[in-house]
């Protein structure tokens, strides 16, 4: 099982971060992704594969300031 933003997610295992973000409707330009305590570099979204036990946090920034 993979945990995303505190909730268990089915069917994410084996996908890359880029695939997961696209399928979940995130805009890649507006997000920051943490996996198991560390920020995933944007350049690694295409090559980082989600594995059983991963804990992922996706932050999607909104405008205003």
């Amino acid at each position: 099982m993979i945990t995303v933003n505190g909730a268990g997610v089915e069917n994410a295992q084996g996908k890359t971060i880029a695939e997961y973000l696209a399928e979940s409707g995130y805009d890649k330009k507006r997000v920051a992704v943490e996996r198991n305590g560390g920020i995933v570099p944007k350049s690694s979204y295409d090559t980082t594969i989600l594995q059983d036990g991963d804990s992922v946090e996706v932050v999607s920034f909104v405008g205003g300031g």
Partner: peptide
Amino acid sequence: ECFDNAECKAMLVNGTAENYP
């Protein structure tokens, strides 16, 4: 990070975290 644009916010957070952990 005190920008107003969402993409600029993400750029600064990601860029800083990657280059200056």
